[in-house]
């Protein structure tokens, strides 16, 4: 329990230390450090191929780092599915850290509701009724209560992505990883998805957001990280990073967005 008198610094929820990732001869991450405090929203921006997606996938071990470590609430995450000794298993990590993907990856053979309760029933072993209650709560929060029995192929891209967010939230995770979740959407559908994410940020959800939506990143983030060539080139408050950049490469990168 935190003491009442001294407001302690928020606990680090998820931490990456010295993450190195290679694909064959190509090194795509050259030792990335990032600590995510409870309630913090961190956006990662950078040019294509800078390694930001690979990095966020390392944070829940969908990509196994070649060096470095991922820690969840101080416990190092091991490479096996279940924990061993003092190591947390990958499976356990992923129960606490949700992810939303660029291409939604909804399960096409299941309805909206079935997609969302799959984690609670199969992984968390919750009774179906309890899972449905939690799921419907989140499905309603993303504004799709009337679509509970629809199949993914009957939904628009924006609706699919909102279902994917509800699917991640229904696991009641400690943190969310959002990997370019608006990049595959038609421009007119981006807003509805970002609206949901903005709501989550306001409610204090801990998030890492890989995005090309620079102004959105500036709006919702506590911290913006600029990656380039597999390294963190710059990081800081949205104001410092996005409105008054002093890094030349960052300026060049931002100029492309500001036209």
């Amino acid at each position: 329990m935190t003491s009442v008198s001294t407001p302690a610094a928020p606990e680090t929820v998820l931490e990456a230390r010295g993450i190195v990732k290679r694909f064959g001869a190509l090194t795509v991450l050259h030792g990335i450090d990032l600590a995510l405090a409870g309630g913090e929203v961190v956006s990662i921006i950078g040019p294509s191929g800078s390694g930001k997606s690979t990095f966020i996938r390392c944070m829940n071990m969908l990509e196994a780092p070649d060096a470095g470590e991922i820690r969840f609430r101080g416990r190092q995450v091991g490479s096996s599915f279940r924990g061993k000794g003092d190591r947390l298993g990958q499976g356990e990590l992923r129960r606490h850290v949700g992810m939303v993907f660029q291409h939604f990856n909804l399960f096409p053979h299941m309805s909206v509701l079935e997609n969302v309760i799959e984690g609670p029933t199969t992984v968390q072993r919750k009774p179906r009724k309890e899972a449905v209650d939690i799921a419907m709560d989140y499905i309603a929060k993303v504004g799709l209560a009337e679509k509970r029995d629809a199949r993914p192929d009957q939904l628009s891209g924006g609706q699919k992505q909102r279902v994917a967010i509800a699917r991640a939230l229904t696991m009641q995770p400690d943190a969310l990883l959002l990997d370019e979740i608006t990049s595959a959407l038609d421009p007119e559908l981006v807003g509805e998805v970002l609206g949901v994410v903005r709501g989550l940020a306001e409610q204090g959800m801990t998030m890492v957001i890989v995005t090309h939506e620079i102004s959105f990143a500036a709006d919702v983030s506590d911290r913006v990280v600029f990656m380039e060539g597999g390294r963190i080139a710059e990081q800081g408050s949205p104001d410092g990073i996005l409105r008054n950049p002093d890094n030349e490469r960052l300026k060049t990168f931002l100029a492309r967005f500001h036209g």
């Binding site: 499976g91 992923r94 994917a164 699917r167 991640a168």
Partner: peptide, 24 residues
């Protein structure tokens, strides 16, 4: 992406196979 989405909600390899991949 289907296996990854299953893994991302904490499913084991066998659960992903049985619940997500095989039915499709």
């Amino acid at each position: 992406g289907q296996s990854e989405a299953g893994a991302a909600i904490g499913m084991s390899g066998w659960q992903v196979m049985r619940r997500i991949v095989l039915p499709q």
